[in-house]
Design a protein around this nucleic acid. Sequence first.
DNA 1: TTAGTGACCGACT
DNA 2: CAGTCGGCCACTA
Length: 108
Amino acid sequence: MTQNHPSSEQQRILQTIHAIPIGQVATYGLIAKLSGLPGKARYVGYILKSLPEGSSIPWHRVINAQGKISFPEHSEVYREQKQRLLAEDVIFKGHKIPLKQYLWKQSS
DNA sequence: TTAGTGACCGACT
DNA sequence: CAGTCGGCCACTA
């Protein structure tokens, strides 16, 4: 199978992100895995980067595997993401979110 | 077509 | 705990 509908992959990813409950977060890698695209964490990042302005996608609930926001600490977008998370009562330990305790079903 | 670039990840110092 | 490193793969110039 050499043909693949590119947009369907994106939609699966966006759908997965959209399903993240308020007050919870998920890593890029987990999003990819739950979307049936294991190993394509960077793809998730790429899609979020190219997300339209007024999108209803809760992009702020996506963080990296280190439990941190994937933006330069001093950037404006970093502050916005952190602000949105704090507004949902997501707890930060310094600059990190304690995944072990708050991350979305770590399954396993 | 090739080479460079990431809103990444896991294993390993 | 903090760095490095190699792998990953869609996208772009």
